[in-house]
Design a binder for these strands. Structure first.
Length: 808
RNA sequence: GCUCGGGUGGUGGAAUGGUAGACACGGAGGACUUAAAAUCCUCUGACCUUUAAAAGUCGUGUGGGUUCGAGUCCCACCCCGAGCACCA
């Protein structure tokens, strides 16, 4: 490895000493504080934000800074363009990874976090980012999590939280309950263990109350389509009807269906094996032994086993139980089956085997009747017809169109139109140590009582033993001194809530804290909030599509509802950086041994080279493999800019060069704003190539090149800037303006086509159609295609192209 | 299965319906050098004809279509990636 590095280093020239220069300017910026953000003044604001990192023990690899570089370029560009820029950084440090790291290395998490944060900060600092470190936040800081707890209490007050004993996702290896969002295909997103359903006392936040707004407000956001789609899928809105079937004997069961139009085709009813009705009607179930053992079998299976693809549906008939179809009063049998999920819809479905694939398969297997009610032409014994059409066998609705009849049939059956979501309420408690304590107290006489706000932060006790218990109790439960407290209401003995908050809690609102990081009285000063909100550009990875980005939007909307924030959405524009893969094309990971460390790259080639390369390597949102060879091109580009300085002279600038310069200023500015950094850099390379081919370059032109390059290569441009005699940092300069009139060329190259094929070109300063067409026809290379043929059509695209359409 | 992206040289990639392959990497040749590195210059999609110059044909996953003109728009299909999924 070392040998390879020393071989590579010889590939670069020693035209400038990146180590010395970068160190000097980083120290200089720190001393002068040029990146400190102040409120006030008349400048418009720009809030440019990175998803703050989780400081893990393994440090950064070369892929992590890609997004940070892009926002840094953006922030620097905005600052030069006259904006008051907020560009902060902080640490998301509560949660399982930090705790696991601590347990493994036998260091207390609070210490491990400190070490890791320092390591991350060191790694970031050598890349020359323009963060205002005075605004640094850390979610594990009691002064920070005080407000995480405060927000939870506000939700509690508004009745948005509830205590539940329902079975939830339990990771046997992490020994904690998990939210649906923490699952990846039925496995724990963190450790990959198969998650079990386990009844555990837990705190849940009613995020589903916000489902509609989370969905509809997506439309106005400037976010990547894929993220919006992911969120839409996750929220999973579906419109349908809730219909009630009477059960013979007194009870009733309601079902959710998106196809009430098929109700006359119901031939049986299916309940989820966990359905609460079963307990009630148990005495009347004639084959209870069989039913009970089926329920037990299903309960034993994991979610994965139950929903495995191609898995055969199984069920059992509840003998002696029947339900009444509200549409026609007919009796239908009632079954329980594993293909009906307890936690979607009402946990019960009306089965229409003729028009639903699952019901069809099930009906075939158990020999249940199949009754077609849509479009006689579609009736088949092979498979279900799931489309729409004309109703048949549907009483007074016969002949009507299935889609248009939905409302009418629902009303006819005394049902109601409802909207259902896949989104579940947010399981908010974790049975682990390293998280924000949930600020509630359990009192035998008063019930659940919130910790008074003035007692916040409710600090996480500093203890030696914090291993997860696995019993469903948090390790905090074992700390008697902490658990036993007084009821804030009646002052009697009471016990603290011992669960902690999930990893995602602290990251739900950190962008607000950056606006006002030191405020002790409130979460954020309303004036500051109003000034900085919303975040203008937010950059991070796609892995947060249905986790952080849903939670944060929800949290923000809640804060909006209680008047803490002024906007209903936190992040106006979102951009996702594509991964940087290892040189072998695989995801960078210790496991594959393909990790490239930014520290090594910076040492050998400089931070400026790394920055240029990561922005130049391809479209920002795309995953691309790292190539040190390709990176050398970026280093060479910087060296050539450095060397070009020797060519500065007093000669006046050539007209072509001036035009290219203005074109480049325009393009670079536009591309930075559009996150097309790769083409911004290539256009500067084109400019550099042109300048190099001249005998000399005038100072003003060279300075302009430095200015537009400054956001990408902050160190070398500041150095060259000062070499040119400037006292003030280049980063405090104003972004150069381009002159639209300079962009207009006075001569044009016009392509000449015959029948759409390029046959020649024409250089002219007269764009008149008649002139150009005449001139084009006279060109010998064109003439030979026209002679003897009839010209049917002449097309002229001004300043660009002529096309002769000929016959013959 | 549904939804959303994407498929362009040896490689990363560029192209408001109007010169496909900008820019860069890699490669080949040359200059400089005692030599190497670095640097600079020239060439570099495929095929084909010709001594050569030059020209021609093909070419953006496949097959159709719209258009004077398609990498770009429309239809069908194939492949790759992401999200959701026994969701009623």
């Amino acid at each position: 490895m070392k040998k390879k590095a020393s071989k590579s280093v010889s590939k670069i020239s020693s035209v400038y000493d990146h180590l010395k220069i970068e160190k000097k300017w980083q120290a200089d910026w720190k001393k002068s504080g040029i990146y400190k953000t102040k409120e006030g003044g008349k400048k418009p604001k720009a809030y440019v934000l990175d998803m703050f990192p989780y400081p893990s023990g393994s440090g950064l690899h070369v892929g992590h800074p890609k997004g940070y570089i892009a926002t840094d370029v953006f922030a620097r560009f905005k600052r030069m363009s006259g904006f008051n820029v907020l560009h902060p950084m902080g640490w998301d440090a509560f949660g399982l990874p930090a705790e696991e790291f601590a347990l493994k290395n036998k260091i207390h998490p609070s210490i491990a976090v400190k070490t890791n944060v320092k390591c991350y900060k060191d790694q970031l600092s050598i890349l020359g980012f323009c963060y205002d470190w005075d605004r640094e936040v850390n979610t594990t800081d009691p002064e920070y999590y005080k407000w995480t707890q405060w927000a939870f209490l506000q939700m509690h007050k508004k009745g948005l939280t509830y205590e539940s004993h329902e079975p939830i996702n339990w990771c046997p290896s992490c020994k904690t309950g998990l939210a649906n969002e923490d699952l990846d295909n039925g496995k724990c997103e963190r450790c990959g263990s198969i998650v079990e359903k386990k009844p555990i006392r837990q705190w849940v936040i009613g995020i589903t109350k916000y489902a509609d707004r989370l969905l509809s407000d997506l439309d106005a956001l400037d976010w990547p389509n894929s993220i919006k789609e992911s969120q839409k899928n996750w929220i999973g809105r579906s419109e349908g009807s809730e219909l009630t079937f009477e059960i013979k004997g007194g009870e009733s069961v309601s079902v959710f269906t998106t196809r009430p139009d098929t109700i006359f085709g119901v031939t049986y009813l299916v309940l989820a094996p966990e359905h609460h009705l079963i307990e009630k009607i148990k005495p009347r179930i004639e084959n209870w032994d069989k039913v009970q053992s089926f329920i037990k079998d299903v309960a034993k299976k994991t979610q994965i086993e139950r929903t495995a693809e191609g898995k055969e549906k199984t069920g059992v008939h509840l003998s002696g139980i029947s339900a009444v179809n509200p549409a026609n009063g007919e009796k239908v049998p009632v079954w329980i089956a594993d293909y009906v999920l307890a936690d979607y819809g009402t946990g019960a479905v009306m089965a229409v085997p003729a028009h639903d694939e699952r019901d069809f398969v099930f009906a075939k297997k158990y020999n249940l009747p199949i009754m077609a009610v849509i479009g006689s032409e579609h009736v088949s014994d092979e498979k279900a017809y799931t489309g729409g059409g004309t109703l048949i066998n549907s009483g007074k609705f016969n002949g009507k169109d299935s889609e248009s009849v939905i409302k009418e049939i629902t009303k006819f059956c005394n049902g109601k139109l409802v909207v259902r979501y896949k989104l579940r309420d947010w399981v908010f408690s974790r049975q682990r140590y390293w998280g924000e304590p949930i600020p509630l107290v359990h009192c035998a006489s008063c019930g659940v009582v919130p910790v008074p706000e003035k007692e916040l932060p409710l600090k996480l006790p500093n203890v030696k033993f914090y291993e997860p218990t696995g019993t469903g109790e948090s390790p905090l439960a074992a700390i008697d001194k902490w658990v036993n407290t007084k009821c804030p209401q009646c002052k009697g003995p009471a016990k603290r809530e011992t669960n902690t908050m999930p990893q995602w809690a602290g990251s739900c609102w950190y962008y607000l804290r950056y606006m006002d990081p030191k405020n002790k009285k409130m979460l954020v000063d309303p004036k500051k909030e109003k000034y900085w909100s919303p975040v203008d550009v937010y950059v991070g990875g796609t892995e947060h599509a249905t986790r952080h980005l849903i939670y944060a939007r929800f949290w923000h909307k809640f804060l909006y509802d209680i008047g803490v924030v002024s906007q209903s959405e936190p992040f106006t524009q979102l951009r996702n950086q594509g991964l940087i893969m290892g040189p072998d094309g695989q995801k960078m990971s210790k496991r594959f041994g393909n990790v490239v460390n930014p520290d090594d790259i910076v040492k050998l080639y400089g931070a400026d080279s790394l920055r240029v390369y990561e922005m130049f390597m391809g479209p920002f949102e795309q995953a691309i493999s790292w190539s040190t060879d390709n990176m050398l091109g970026s280093r060479r580009f910087i060296e050539r800019v450095w060397r070009l300085k020797q060519k500065i002279s007093k000669d006046s600038v050539k007209k072509d060069t001036e035009q290219l310069l203005h074109k480049t200023i325009k393009k670079v500015g536009q591309d930075i704003q559009g996150f097309s950094h790769n083409t911004a850099i290539s256009s500067m390379m084109i400019l550099l190539n042109a300048l190099e081919s001249e005998a000399s370059v005038d100072k003003k032109t060279y300075e302009t090149l430095l200015l537009i390059l400054a956001p990408f290569t902050p160190h070398i441009t500041d150095d060259l800037w000062s070499q040119l005699g400037h006292k003030k940092s280049i980063h405090l300069e104003v972004w150069p303006t381009y002159d639209e009139s300079k962009l207009i060329s006075d001569s044009f190259k016009i392509m000449i086509q015959v029948n759409g094929k390029i046959r020649g070109s024409l250089e002219t300063n007269n764009p008149e159609e008649a002139f150009v067409i005449k001139a084009a026809k006279e060109k010998p290379e064109i003439k030979k295609y026209l002679d003897g043929n009839e010209i049917i059509k002449e097309i002229y695209v001004k300043n660009k192209l002529v096309n002769f359409v000929v016959k013959g």
